[in-house]
Design a protein around this nucleic acid. Structure first.
Lengths: 329, 329
DNA sequence: TTGAAAGCGCTACCAG
DNA sequence: CTGGTAGCGCTTTCAA
């Protein structure tokens, strides 16, 4: 592998000139020409390790996610990546599959890889563990979608509880009194918040809480699918169900349709995420739509600000979800 | 940030001893003790840039994908990552969103980041571009799921054409004669192969080809959804449809159910990917199931072999998909 | 088992 | 605009 010295020798200039040329500085045209052909001749590429060592930066941002597959993450990532890119950064994704050991290990790895910043969707780490792994948070970090309680770093969330509250309220306005909820693990931040919104709405609406109507499983298809079956076995069935995640929603609908139930005539469903698919259904399925794009953009902005010297206290922003379609059907 | 020298000074030994300690070498217990406490006191971490510069390795593998969201990728990634991890490597994912510019740019970036190897699912790059970006393929690369024609590197594919052939054959055995296909962009390797299998099956079965029954769009929900509507408008409708990707399948089914059509009574559907969801339906939806786990594992093994010195000619392996459920329903 | 010293390849300073 | 030079922080001989 050719080094900068080889190129310098062949082009008849000094390494510093090559370096300047490579980094967009001004070089006499005649030298630039010689450098160009030397680079081609030797098939020279800068050694990223050496450059990073010198500059102590990599221009890369680590993104630590629980699950690569959820459409929510995909949409957030697209917006995030776009903004980062505009500022000369690239994102590198690491995925821990909702596995505590991997969450630790991948976080450690991302840090050790020399990323300049971190976008982090936590699941199961304590503040102490995070500090230990990151050397006291010296690396700029933005949490998204979830939050480790007490971790002093910028955080971008959506208004899970309020959105859930609004969803339940709308169902109630349509006359539903027995409203079930199928949600993710109670330990996961966002699932917890959505459940809180549900409970608060019941209380505000004067609807009696019935724990048979609360199903907490995983954030997956099977939970939605089995949730349907469990609810149908109740003697006093719900007339409406709030499914608090995309996979759960799809699982539930699949099961309901297989049983020949019409939505919303036989059972009303209020979903979460994946606006494009749900509005495409007939009739459109009402959903809580998180501002995925805005979350990604804001997280990227916060990170860029930290990366460029901003040193204010940690900011936590909750972005508003919307209910779609806007009007009750 | 503390350096190895600081630690050495505080512990009263030389930097080389620290280095040896850090890398698991033998150090007198008394020194080890001093080193440990110095590390804690200074909160020392090795500088990854310096280490990588010296060793010229990063122990990381770049994974370049078109789309982060597809369940197929998620399953392949899980298996891949597991094997890599067992060999001391970590995977770093970069996603180009089926965008040609980003495919180039992200590939360049991954290389420049110093990954030791590359797992690549290509879409739109020529051999020349790839060579140009990677400096003549000096970096060990394994292609998965798709292949740039003529690129001399290890490749792990599934038997798209044969699987499609088998799917169509089974539909025909059930008595279907008008069988439609909804597939991804004709330029995408895997979509092309699946279409080829479809055509070959028709020909083998003596079924006349009708271009009204071939819909080529994107690999997404909307294509499946609209595909249904288009097919329903034909005067001579198909009795069966082969949907060659997960999102297309879901989109198609959603549309069909909204129109009140029963599957398979009113229209038979043969899907692709996502075994767990399709078999959960009642009746189970027949699907082509790609060996996601095996693909991930084999790709990882191939890469590890290259990384550890194997220097044979490029290998291309096609792994067999299965049809699920095994028996016709 | 330990330490001295020589770089890995690059950038950035400063003098010319 | 150009080049000499001094490291960035680490690993790795090699000799002690």
């Amino acid at each position: 592998m050719a080094t900068i010295k080889d190129v310098a020798k062949l082009a008849g200039v000094s390494p510093s000139t090559i370096s300047k040329y490579m980094n967009g500085g001004n070089v006499r045209e005649e030298n630039a020409e010689a450098i160009r052909s030397a680079i081609v001749a030797l098939d020279y590429r800068v050694n990223p390790f050496a450059r990073n060592l010198k500059t102590q930066r990599s221009r890369s941002i680590g993104v630590l996610l629980p699950d690569i597959t959820a459409p929510f993450f995909g949409n957030v990532m697209t917006a995030l990546d776009k903004v980062l890119r505009e500022h000369g950064y690239h994102s590198l994704i690491s995925c821990y599959g909702s596995n505590h050991g991997l969450e630790r290990d991948n976080l450690r790895f991302l840090i050790s890889t020399g990323v300049d910043g971190l976008i982090y969707m936590p699941e199961n780490l304590s503040v102490e563990e995070f500090f230990e792994l990151t050397a006291n948070c010296s690396i700029p970090t933005v949490q998204i979608d979830r939050s480790i309680q007490g971790l002093p770093c910028d955080t971008v969330l959506s208004d899970n509880a309020d959105a859930a509250h609004a969803a339940i309220t709308r169902l109630a306005a349509q006359g539903h009194k027995r409203i079930a909820i199928i949600t993710g693990p109670k330990v996961v931040f966002s699932a917890k918040e959505r459940l809180v919104g549900y409970l608060r709405a019941l209380s505000d609406l004067g609807i009696l809480y019935d724990d048979q109507l609360v199903i907490s499983g995983q954030n997956d298809f099977a939970t939605g699918y089995r949730g349907f079956e469990d609810l149908m076995q109740l003697s006093d069935r719900p007339t409406a169900v709030f499914t608090t995640n995309y996979d759960i929603t799809i699982g539930f609908i699949t099961a309901a349709r297989e049983r020949g139930l019409l939505i919303p005539q036989d059972i009303a469903v209020f979903g979460f995420d994946c606006l494009d698919i749900c509005t495409m259904m007939k009739p459109p399925l009402p959903v809580v739509h998180q501002p995925e794009q805005e979350i990604g953009q804001l997280a990227a902005r916060y990170l860029i600000e930290r990366l460029t010297g901003f040193d204010g206290p940690p900011r936590t922003t909750r972005l508003c979800s919307s209910i779609e379609p806007k009007e009750s059907v």
